[in-house]
């Protein structure tokens, strides 16, 4: 099944080229150039993974990460950054990011992480569905 990915970066050419490469690899890609556009996309669609640039003008990557995690706690977010400091990486993971990659990123490593994100998301959705089913069965006394 094609992975649905939201790609967020303020560098237009980077966004276009990476989006094309991910599409060639069979992924369904939506792009956003800033935090607000990203939050709109997350609220209006469902994604297997979000690939997020850490440093963006206005709302930065950490802020976008926090907001997405508040709205969609199960969302799998991979942070991309030009400079991966240990401090930022730890902060991102603490806030619920699934992974952290440094630019320039290797497309195959990124694709692998996206694939893992999709599997993890499916598992979380399955668990949620199972819990809901148990709750319904319990409440009806079946």
């Amino acid at each position: 099944m094609a992975e649905k990915v939201l790609l967020i970066d303020d560098e237009t050419e980077f966004l276009q080229n990476l989006s094309d490469r991910m599409t060639i690899r069979g992924m369904e890609v939506t792009t956003a150039q800033d935090g607000n556009a990203a939050l709109n996309a997350v609220n209006n669609d469902s994604f297997d993974a979000v690939v997020l640039d850490l440093q963006m003008p206005g709302m930065d990557g950490i802020e976008v990460l926090k907001r997405i995690k508040t709205e969609r706690p199960n969302m799998q977010i991979i942070l991309l950054t030009g400079h991966a400091s240990l401090e930022k990486g730890v902060e991102a993971m603490r806030l619920g990011a699934m992974d952290f990659m440094e630019k320039p990123a290797d497309i195959n490593s990124l694709a692998e992480k996206i694939h893992k994100a999709q599997a993890r998301k499916m598992l979380l959705v399955e668990r949620e569905t199972e819990a809901k089913m148990k709750e319904i069965i319990g409440s009806r006394g079946w």
């Binding site: 980077f14 990476l18 030009g82 630019k103 320039p104």
Partner: peptide, 9 residues
Amino acid sequence: KNVLAVINE
């Protein structure tokens, strides 16, 4: 790094 990332893609 950002320039290299765009060239890389």
